[in-house]
Nucleic acid binder design. Sequence first.
DNA 1: CCAAAAGTGTTTTGGGTACACCCATGA
DNA 2: TCATGGGTGTACCCAAAACACTTTTGG
Lengths: 243, 243
Amino acid sequence: MSNKDERNSISEVTWDDYMPGISIDCVIFGYHKKELKILVLEYKKSGIFALPGGFLRKNEELKDATERVLFERTGLSDIYLNQFHTFGSLKRADTKPMQSVLKKNQVPFEENHFLLQRFVSVSYYALVDIKRVEPVADELSDSCKWYDTDTLPPLMLDHREIFETALKHLRNNINRNVVGMNLLDESFTMGELQNLHETILSEKLNRTGFHRKMMLSGRLKRLGKKKTGKAHRSPFLYKFLDA
Amino acid sequence: MSNKDERNSISEVTWDDYMPGISIDCVIFGYHKKELKILVLEYKKSGIFALPGGFLRKNEELKDATERVLFERTGLSDIYLNQFHTFGSLKRADTKPMQSVLKKNQVPFEENHFLLQRFVSVSYYALVDIKRVEPVADELSDSCKWYDTDTLPPLMLDHREIFETALKHLRNNINRNVVGMNLLDESFTMGELQNLHETILSEKLNRTGFHRKMMLSGRLKRLGKKKTGKAHRSPFLYKFLDA
DNA sequence: CCAAAAGTGTTTTGGGTACACCCATGA
DNA sequence: TCATGGGTGTACCCAAAACACTTTTGG
């Protein structure tokens, strides 16, 4: 089933069902091969990049709206989600980028088009297993792709700041978050978990200390051994308890 | 100077200058005699209590709007402010309490009155020196008063949850916040500072450990001694460095 | 002199880091 | 047997907690 069918068409929709002035932006983190990535939309042929986002329906819970937006872009439900800040700067009121997007999409619009207003953005970050995600572009975009956070394209409006704030919160919560549970496979080696933490923190961690801390946390269960085919002792596999 | 004059009159205002659907709510903390207090509005004769709040002007920064709201209720600028969460539950859409308030105030209103809509609330907590504050009620209220957080009246909608979330964030940030700098006089004894922390945390702290930790933090400067008139050694006075 | 609160020194504890060493494995 | 990465034991450091003791004050 495609959820495109359920979505409103940008040109024809009545936006009456949506709260004006409020948008939801998502920093969706994934991890692959020692790279921290986020999902970024590129609007059609405009060279304008943005965080995935959406709007709040008038009879919809804010959190439900966020989960809906995430589902539309990733196909996933049950995503780890964290509301971390609401951005209300006036520089968000600049409608030029969105006008440009609408023009490139050949969407006819009036000055008071729903998308051409000042939005206060309630922002969330999400942690997803990159292998379970099938990124889906929205109607105005021709791509929704993973970008390494070290080499992000320039993002529209204050989206760069939103990303950086999200990363700061992710780092602060790295131990509470159980990032491994959301960004790694169900089972993983201690080295893989440490690589993940080091990538998020942009910082080398002490190997034995990390090992001990994780084991003492009581959140890990040791499974069998993993044969790596590499020339060294085979590591144990671990998984996170509960869920 | 009264800022009432600058304010819109609820019955006649054009609300056109305000963003619809977005409200700002403030949990304003004060401290006096071992009691943690917050400012609560009581709507006129309705027995309905609420957190101080306001709305965002269309050409106003979100943070500026919050400072404006705080100034209107407390007369203070330069307030320690922290945005901690945005509340978007559907139970906020219940307009009955506000309808009741408007009726008691004999404000004529239509169903689509600005105040009778669903608001997503961007919430801040503030720390203020209770002695510098002159609480000012708004037009719909007959009081804006300090309430001990242990004996709050029932608050409208989800305001109780907002308060509790604010308190949780305050507790988590108690060391980063330098609460003493904002909630106490400029100079204070170590015992007074410890009492403040214990009140906020609802928890007894180790006296000597607290003393040492504060001294080692390097944020305190020891001033002269204070004569308490009490039958014990006179304590030093301290103040926070920088500002 | 005593009670009460403030200040300080000493000891203990526990988490974190550093380092050493052994283990398993494939080339 | 060597290089490599994984696992664990030991030593050390530092901050927080626990406890003991001294100091100052008014009654």
